[in-house]
């Protein structure tokens, strides 16, 4: 059995997080992951407080294990959602797309364990100083908003920079990835893309199908021009976007408008033309429809075999 200090710290069985995914990871998916012994995380995305409160309630009805909420700091509702998680006393808060400094005191005083996503060593250090209990080092292989560093060089550098437990994310979709993350110094992993195929993940069937049929070079990064690069599956939307992204006659506002609502179209309507299907480079490693619990067990079992065998390289 794969165990690490993260398991004791968060009272979970497996050192595996299901990353918050805007519009996607709701109370049901998070509860399924937590029930399976991992850490399920509800994504607040750009949603208002009522949605988040409702999803926490859904998850609490389905599980009595710890759950997390991910707060997207670019969200117009970040302030109100920050208060909701403190009221509801969720066990863990993860943050994405920015610097959560201004909420740290509120969350810590509510007894919440704060685990920010970081894309650089300096950011990890700053989070340590502000009282984070761990950090998630996420490489640009991942789906969604991304940083520029890849997981392989980022994780060891973050491990060197802080004394906190480090959770590796980005490009991890099977036991080999988990084992590699441990070798790099991490003591847990966060996966997003792999959970897109989970039975409890209620995305549109077209979305699931696109992930299941993806090949290795199927993802692209758009949005660099606006300073918010995003990795998604190559589709009509990403092609259209890329055509205008570096066309100076198209204003930033027009570009922003083009992307607005595109994730919702993918998740809820399965719109293959206008939808933005966020997924990481590991999408092509996701080949089966499974229960969240099967994903966790399979990935952990694979990692265990690989880590046990790792000593064969030492002669």
């Amino acid at each position: 059995m794969i165990k690490s200090e993260i398991c004791e710290l968060l009272s979970i069985e497996y050192p595996i997080f299901q990353g918050g995914m805007a519009w996607i990871s709701d109370g049901s998916l998070a509860a399924a992951v937590s029930n399976a012994g991992g850490l399920g995380i509800i994504a607040a995305g750009n949603a208002p407080q009522d949605y988040v409160r409702e999803q926490i309630k859904v998850a609490r009805e389905l599980t009595n294990k710890p759950i997390g909420v991910n707060i997207m700091l670019l969200s117009p509702f970040a302030d109100e959602v920050a208060k909701v998680v403190a009221d509801e006393k969720v066990e863990v808060v993860t943050t994405g797309a920015g610097n959560p400094s201004k909420y740290m005191e509120l969350w810590k005083s509510a007894g919440i364990k704060v685990i920010p996503v970081v894309a650089s060593a300096a950011m990890a250090k700053l989070m340590e100083r502000l009282g984070a209990c761990a950090v998630i080092a996420e490489g640009g292989e991942s789906g969604g908003h991304i940083g520029e560093m890849a997981t392989m060089p980022l994780v060891p550098q973050v491990c060197d920079a802080v004394k906190l437990p480090v959770v590796a994310a980005g490009g991890i979709a099977d036991g080999r990835g988990v084992a590699a993350a441990f070798m790099l110094g991490a003591c847990a992993v966060q996966m997003g893309t792999r959970f897109l195929s989970a039975d409890e993940c209620s995305i549109h069937p077209n979305y699931k199908e696109k992930v299941l049929s993806a090949k290795d070079r199927c993802t692209v990064v758009t949005g660099r021009r606006l300073g918010h690069p995003v990795r998604s599956l190559r589709t009509q939307f990403s092609n259209d976007y890329q055509k205008v992204e570096y066309d100076s006659s198209v204003s930033d506002a027009e570009l922003e408008a083009l992307a607005g609502g595109a994730l919702r179209l993918a998740v809820q309507e399965g719109d293959l033309k206008k939808g933005c299907f966020l997924a990481g480079q590991a999408a092509s490693m996701v080949n089966k429809r499974q229960k969240a619990s099967e994903i966790i067990k399979e990935v952990a079992d694979e990692a265990e075999i690989i880590l046990k065998r790792a000593s064969i390289w030492v002669k």
Binding site: G98, N99, A119, S120, A122, M123, K125, L126, R129, G147, G227
Partner: peptide, 19 residues
């Protein structure tokens, strides 16, 4: 960018000896 700013502040702290 914003990540560079964080690094910049860390280097600055080292130089001036305050947080």
């Amino acid at each position: 960018d914003s990540l560079d700013t964080v690094e910049l502040l860390m280097s600055l702290e080292d130089e001036i000896g305050m947080e």
